[in-house]
Design a protein around this nucleic acid. Structure first.
Length: 431
RNA sequence: GUGGGUGUAGCUCAGUGGUAGAGCCCUGCUUUGUGGCAGCAGUUGUCGUGGGUUCGAGUCCCAUCAUCCACCCCA
């Protein structure tokens, strides 16, 4: 490979046809589910004012501090490629009066598209990555927390057959609860100060809650004796959480109460959850979300309760690649033209087949001076793995017949009529 | 930002200081209107890049880049 070839940017990858087909099938599944729940798609810009993310994600967060692609527009304004979708969605909903107009409106939206974060790539983590997100506005009742989780279950388990995916759920209370619990953590860890490394000490000062999701076994061991958040938080948040768990039990949705789910973005409160899958390596969260009742006020000044989740497409793709229901479907019929005369006639016949059989993938192959029938058949058999080849040459055109070859079968080729061909194609088209 | 692994043919990789290799793939032929199986023939390389040690470096050393995995962070 020439060193003059310009390669793609680190962590920003191409998506090739076989994966694209799986993604298209995944998208169909999601469109259907969104329709079933009457959730409207919303299409959001990739660029926003940097200020939007500073205000929503939180100035102290790693994402805003180090990971945004930020630059000056030609007028000197700071703008950023979006690192996530929720902030844009809230901004759009407010700006277009979708969720508040002299009162709170109840709305459900979903969106999808690329997000950008300047991180070091590793498995399941890229600088440009794709998310599908769902956001509910105006709903404060726990039934809506449950509905979102139930929607996830339908998608991941019922539709995508991810039987090993696990729901981890937790509550992080309200803002005051978190301040109180942060103090509890700081006090508790005083006697273990020498067991923390420098990064952990910094985290302890900046955002003690984040130590709860540390992967460090030592910290995890120390924290087993830490008082549980549920015992510190306000009655309102505690009862709320317990009620959600009861509902999940009633709905037979399996969950793991997981105190390490604390979320990295500042805007969450009460319900937080992640769907994890053990086969994904270190980045095992396929989907994450929660309630963010304060965010809309933070961005637009009006208070609208809200919650949502997003899932990472690349991580989900890793899990569904082997799912036959979604996988790449190869062309079924290779159409070979070997006629030397009347070339438009073969073309019309092939187009007629497409008119009649919408569900079949037909691949046209013209045998000309640069190729041979041998090459055509080899291509159909090896590259495309077709079921049949339909061959039209001058003799077929004059007799008004088709030559049908069945790949991967021992029977000889047959010259067949239009009716006989229709019979075969109808079966394929319907099945 | 930090740490570790890996960079040799289109792909997967072997090659522990002495001529650059294998399997798969690809192309052609055996069959100019018949693929798969088989046989034959063929194409493909700045050994990631730059420097150093050596009579001699794909191999040892240094640097650098890329990539993968992990930390951090997060979908």
């Amino acid at each position: 490979m020439s060193d003059k070839l310009i390669k793609s940017i680190k962590g920003i990858n191409d998506i090739l046809p076989e994966d694209v087909e799986i993604l298209q099938n995944l998208e169909k599944v999601i469109y259907n589910i969104a329709n079933q729940y009457c959730i409207s798609e919303i299409r959001l810009p990739l660029l926003e004012k940097t200020e939007l993310f500073k205000r929503s994600i939180g100035i102290g967060s790693e994402i805003v501090e180090k990971e945004m692609y930020t630059f000056e527009d030609n007028n000197g304004e700071l703008i950023s490629l979006r690192p996530e979708g929720t902030a844009s969605c809230v901004r759009c909903a407010l700006e277009n009066n979708l969720i508040y107009d002299r009162g709170i409106k109840k709305k459900k939206y979903w969106y999808h598209g690329p997000m950008f974060r300047y991180e070091n790539p590793q498995r399941g983590r890229f600088r440009q990555f794709y998310q599908f997100g769902f956001e509910y506005f105006g709903f404060s009742n726990i039934d809506n927390d449950v509905e979102l989780i139930s929607l996830c279950k339908r998608l991941f388990i019922s539709k995508l057959d991810l039987t090993n995916i696990k729901l981890h759920i937790n509550s992080i209370g309200n803002k005051e609860d978190r301040v109180k619990y942060a103090e509890t953590i700081s006090t508790f860890l005083k006697k273990y100060k020498n067991d923390l490394n420098q990064i952990q000490k910094n985290t302890l000062v900046r955002n003690p809650m984040r130590l709860l999701d540390s992967k460090d076994k030592k910290i995890q061991n120390i924290l087993t004796d830490l008082p549980k958040f549920i015992n510190v938080m306000s009655d309102h948040s505690r009862v709320r959480f317990e009620s959600i768990l009861e509902k999940l039990d009633e709905l037979k949705i399996k969950y793991y109460v997981d105190n390490s789910i604390v979320r990295g973005l500042d805007y969450y409160n009460d319900t937080v959850f992640e769907w994890k899958h053990s086969s994904l390596g270190s980045q095992d969260a396929v989907c994450a979300g929660g309630r963010y009742d304060e965010l809309v006020k933070e961005i637009g000044g009006v208070s609208v309760p809200a919650m949502g989740f997003a899932f990472g497409v690349e991580r989900l793709l890793d899990l569904i690649r082997d799912n036959k229901k979604l996988s790449y479907t190869r062309p079924r019929i290779l159409l070979i033209n070997i006629s030397k005369e009347n070339s438009y006639k073969y073309f019309l016949k092939f187009e007629e087949l497409r008119d009649k059989y919408h569900a079949i993938k037909f691949y046209n192959y013209n045998v000309d001076e640069n190729s041979s029938l041998r090459a055509a058949l080899q291509f159909g058999s090896k590259n495309l793995n077709c079921k049949y080849a339909v061959i039209i040459g001058d003799s077929e055109l004059s007799d008004n017949l088709y030559t049908l070859k069945e790949f991967h079968a021992k029977n000889e080729d047959k010259k067949i009529s239009q009716n006989e061909l229709d019979k075969i194609l109808k079966d394929i088209n319907n099945g």
